[in-house]
Measured scan of single mutants.
Amino acid sequence: MEVRTIKVFTTVDNINLHTQVVDMSMTYGQQFGPTYLDGADVTKIKPHNSHEGKTFYVLPNDDTLRVEAFEYYHTTDPSFLGRYMSALNHTKKWKYPQVNGLTSIKWADNNCYLATALLTLQQIELKFNPPALQDAYYRARAGEAANFCALILAYCNKTVGELGDVRETMSYLFQHANLDSCKRVLNVVCKTCGQQQTTLKGVEAVMYMGTLSYEQFKKGVQIPCTCGKQATKYLVQQESPFVMMSAPPAQYELKHGTFTCASEYTGNYQCGHYKHITSKETLYCIDGALLTKSSEYKGPITDVFYKENSYTTTIK
């Protein structure tokens, strides 16, 4: 009895394709271990004539594949690729409408935090270190965002349907971005203890939790000093293409032309909904596939993004 075979390709990165001759009487799992086709788990399936010449994702289970996976995804987590594939199996079914010149995501599976993050990423200057993220990001900007969303979920250790947080998501993504040249110098002034300067680099240099107003941050924000008295913390120097200011959701007025974009969060910790506000020729609110415009805006804002380049204080 002759062994019926077909020729397929296996890959971990969709760049390096490895030619395989597979036995049609055995499952993919018996031949390769966990195997995925377009995100779908085909591990328990036997090869079919229609699979001839198709590319299958496999887990990096030998040295060659491990090197290829690390170079593309910059992670050695053995569960990463499987999590990416199972997320992709959902995100490829989502709709990605162009809204006001940006790629958004039609609401499904509690994905409003991903839509808000995706919209924000198209408006701030950011370059990702893992080629996987950078490639998928370019495709997302062009309207094909399924891979990018699935990668975000995998890097953030999230599953489809789980509630997510924009600030946490951005923080994970910033860790995989090139923020080497970003720098922030802060000064804390206390009447009792004097003053202390701190220099922050990388992710810490672009994120701040405690106030939404970048102007206020430049002037000074009140913080408790270690001595128990009130101290003032203010920005001395900022070198970065953008800054992200966050605070627990509270009524906040966004003035046209003073910011790049913002995240609105309605609801409580267990259950809520994100919308995205962007400042173009007027203010726009993007909620999944829905767009509304207004000249002014007041609502429960939790993150505001500002364009920056270089700032030095005039406070002496």
Rank of each mutant, 00 (worst) to 15 (best):
K93G: 04
D41H: 02
K316P: 15
Q31H: 15
S79N: 11
K280N: 07
S310M: 14
L235Y: 05
E308G: 08
D13L: 01
K280I: 07
I286A: 06
K158M: 00
P97F: 08
A262M: 02
I105K: 02
C193G: 02
D303N: 12
T43M: 08
F259T: 04
P300C: 11
S240D: 05
K92Q: 10
T169S: 03
E281C: 13
A145P: 11
I286F: 06
L291Y: 12
N110R: 09
N129C: 12
L173M: 15
F217S: 07
Y72V: 04
G29M: 05
P131S: 02
H48L: 15
S213M: 08
T5M: 08
L17N: 09
D38R: 11
Q195W: 12
S246W: 02
P78D: 12
A289R: 07
A205D: 05
G161E: 01
K191R: 13
S246H: 07
A154C: 06
K95T: 11
L121E: 06
D109R: 04
A289W: 00
G161H: 03
L133I: 01
M24I: 12
Q251F: 10
Y36Q: 06
T260K: 03
V42H: 06
T266M: 03
F242W: 07
R4M: 12
F70W: 12
D23Y: 10
T266N: 08
G210E: 03
P249Q: 06
V203D: 04
E168F: 09
R141T: 13
C156Y: 07
L114Q: 01
K54Q: 12
S246K: 02
F9Q: 15
Y28S: 04
Y208T: 03
I315Y: 15
Q20C: 11
K7T: 12
K54W: 11
A87R: 02
P249I: 03
V21F: 09
T19W: 07
G257L: 05
Y274D: 05
L212R: 12
E281P: 03
S171V: 06
E162C: 07
P248Q: 14
P248H: 10
A40Q: 12
F70I: 09
I277M: 07
L179T: 02
V188N: 05
K219R: 10
A289S: 05
K233T: 12
E125Y: 00
G210N: 06
V42S: 04
S25R: 12
E71A: 11
M26H: 11
S104K: 02
A142E: 11
V206D: 07
E281H: 06
T159N: 14
Q122F: 01
D303G: 03
Q31R: 12
S246N: 04
C182I: 07
R139G: 08
N268S: 08
D180E: 14
Q270S: 13
S279E: 03
Q197W: 09
F70H: 13
E2W: 15
D41L: 05
K218C: 08
K293T: 13
A87S: 06
L88N: 00
G228R: 05
A289F: 01
H74G: 14
T76C: 15
K127I: 07
M209D: 12
N89A: 11
S279F: 00
C227H: 04
V185R: 07
S279W: 02
E144C: 12
A231N: 02
H90R: 14
G161V: 06
T91L: 03
E125M: 06
N61L: 11
Y284K: 04
G82F: 13
S181W: 13
T5I: 13
C261A: 07
G33L: 01
Y297V: 07
Y269Q: 12
Q237W: 10
H273N: 02
N187I: 10
N309R: 13
S50N: 10
D63Q: 09
S246V: 03
T120Y: 04
A177M: 07
Y311R: 08
G29K: 04
P300G: 09
D303Q: 06
Y269D: 15
T266G: 11
E253S: 15
L186G: 06
Q196F: 13
N178A: 14
P131K: 01
Y265V: 08
R141W: 00
A115K: 10
S50I: 11
Y137G: 00
A40T: 11
T10M: 08
N129L: 08
A262C: 03
K275Q: 14
L212F: 05
V236C: 09
T199A: 09
T91V: 08
L212T: 11
Y84P: 02
Y311P: 08
Y274S: 03
L163V: 12
L126M: 12
K158T: 05
T226L: 10
S294N: 13
D109E: 11
C193R: 06
L114A: 01
E264Y: 01
A115V: 01
P78R: 06
P241V: 06
E168I: 08
A40Y: 11
N111E: 01
V206M: 06
L163P: 15
S246M: 02
C193L: 04
K158V: 04
G143R: 00
H176G: 01
S171L: 13
T282Q: 13
I45S: 13
L126H: 02
P60Q: 04
L283E: 13
V304R: 04
V243Q: 08
S86L: 12
P130V: 11
V206C: 09
I15W: 07
N110F: 01
Q238G: 09
T266P: 09
T75Q: 11
V188E: 00
S295G: 10
A231R: 06
V42P: 00
L151E: 03
I301W: 03
Y311F: 08
A140C: 09
E281F: 02
C227R: 03
Y265G: 05
N111G: 03
A108M: 05
A205R: 04
H48F: 10
T282R: 10
P224T: 15
G33N: 00
E308W: 07
T260P: 09
R66V: 14
G228P: 00
G33M: 00
G194P: 09
K275A: 08
L37E: 15
S279P: 06
V221H: 07
V160S: 02
N147P: 10
Y214G: 06
G29W: 07
Q237D: 09
G228A: 01
V160I: 15
Q175C: 08
S213L: 07
N129S: 09
T64Y: 06
T198F: 09
L65N: 08
C285R: 10
E52D: 11
W94I: 00
K158L: 14
C190M: 05
G288H: 01
G210Q: 08
T292S: 12
H176C: 05
C227F: 05
I301K: 04
P34L: 07
Y73E: 01
A250N: 12
D287I: 03
S294K: 14
G299W: 03
Y113M: 04
K229G: 14
R83H: 06
T5W: 15
T313M: 15
E162H: 05
L254S: 02
M209F: 12
E68F: 02
E308C: 12
D77L: 01
Q230A: 10
E308R: 08
Y306R: 05
I105F: 02
Y137Q: 03
K158D: 00
Y214F: 09
R139C: 10
K7Q: 12
A250C: 13
P131T: 01
Q230F: 09
I124R: 03
R184L: 09
T91D: 00
N187L: 14
T211A: 10
A145T: 02
E168N: 11
P78C: 14
K229T: 10
Y284V: 11
G299I: 04
T103C: 02
L179H: 12
Q222H: 08
Y36G: 07
F32L: 08
Y72A: 13
K293C: 13
Y265C: 01
T27K: 11
C112Q: 12
F128P: 02
A117W: 00
N16T: 13
Y36L: 02
S310K: 14
D109F: 02
Y284R: 07
K298T: 13
T266W: 13
G220F: 02
Q175E: 11
K127P: 05
T314V: 15
L173Y: 00
